[in-house]
Design a protein around this nucleic acid. Structure first.
Length: 178
DNA sequence: CCCTGATTCGC
DNA sequence: GCGAATCAGG
């Protein structure tokens, strides 16, 4: 989509108004990513917004190595390839202990509660509201859908001609009682 | 995991 | 000019 004056206006307004890039992207509608917003904002010169990363604090970590290009605007992005490990540092290098997903003995099923809901988890209710164990499906939702694949199939059923949908009753819906 | 903004770079 | 990919920090 093109950056019309109107959309740029929305962007500028939101950005200066303190909205996050995500919120602005959402406001601009589909087809506009958070990155698109940030990229455009910078190109427009709207910069300087509290970045969670910028503060960073300096501190000369290892010093020695020496980077000829010490003039990095912000976070320097070193390409993995070009990095040469200093031989004289780190006498005891640990081989990155992979954090195993240790599911020892007592691991709870971890039910998805109201508080766990987000844009990308399936919000299909399991059980009935008010019940002690009422929760939500919680599976990864289909992108841009409120439910996972499985529940989307149940939630979004093509409208059949009235004549034909008389007989086969619809499947049981969550929260439905008979 | 989720989120944030910043930067790069192929298109 | 654009923005996905990626980085880096919370």
């Amino acid at each position: 989509m093109a950056w019309t004056d109107e959309r740029i206006e929305t962007l500028r307004k939101g950005w200066e108004g303190g909205k996050t890039a995500s919120q602005i992207a959402e406001e601009l509608g589909e087809g506009v990513s958070r990155n698109a917003v940030i990229g455009k904002a910078h190109r427009l010169g709207l910069q300087a917004r509290p970045s969670p990363v910028k503060g960073g604090e300096g501190e000369a970590v290892e010093a020695v190595a020496a980077a000829p290009a010490a003039k990095s605007p912000a976070a320097p992005r070193a390409k993995p390839e070009a990095v040469e490990a200093p031989v004289l540092a780190a006498p005891v290098e640990k081989p990155a202990p992979r954090r195993a997903t240790k599911v020892v003995a007592n691991s709870k099923p971890a039910k998805t509660t109201l508080l766990d809901l987000s844009e990308r988890v399936c919000k299909w209710p399991i059980g009935h509201p008010g019940e002690p164990d009422f929760h939500f499906c919680g599976q990864p939702s289909k992108p841009s859908f409120p439910y996972c694949e499985e529940h989307c199939l149940v939630a979004y059923q093509a409208q059949l001609p009235r004549r034909d949908r008389s007989r086969p009753p619809p499947p049981m819906m969550p929260g439905m009682r008979r």
